[in-house]
Amino acid sequence: MAIVVRIDVELARRKLSVGEFAEQVGLTPANVAVLKNGRARAVRFSTLEAMCRVLGCQPGDLLEWVPDEEVGSAAAQIRESG
Rank of each mutant, 00 (worst) to 15 (best):
L27R: 14
V25E: 10
A76N: 12
G72F: 08
C57D: 01
S73G: 14
F45S: 11
L48N: 01
A74F: 07
S46T: 10
R39Y: 03
V54W: 03
S46E: 09
A76D: 14
K36G: 07
P29K: 13
G56R: 10
E64N: 03
N37M: 05
K36A: 11
A42F: 04
A76W: 08
A33R: 12
T28C: 10
M51N: 01
G60W: 00
V66E: 06
G60L: 01
G72K: 14
R53H: 06
C52M: 05
S73E: 15
A42G: 09
K36S: 11
V32I: 13
V34K: 15
C57K: 01
C57N: 03
A42P: 01
M51F: 00
S46Q: 09
V32H: 06
C52H: 01
V25G: 13
E49L: 07
N31V: 09
F45H: 07
L55G: 03
M51R: 02
E69C: 14
S73Y: 10
T47D: 06
W65F: 06
W65L: 08
V32W: 04
G60A: 03
A75P: 04
R44A: 11
S73C: 13
R44G: 09
V34I: 14
N31P: 03
S73A: 15
G72E: 15
L27G: 08
A50M: 06
V34Q: 13
A75S: 12
R53A: 12
T28H: 11
E49I: 05
A30S: 14
T47Y: 01
V34A: 14
L55H: 01
L63T: 04
A75M: 12
L62I: 02
K36M: 11
A74Y: 06
S73T: 14
F45W: 05
V71W: 07
D68Y: 05
A50C: 06
V25S: 14
E69Q: 15
R53E: 07
L27C: 09
V71E: 10
A75Y: 06
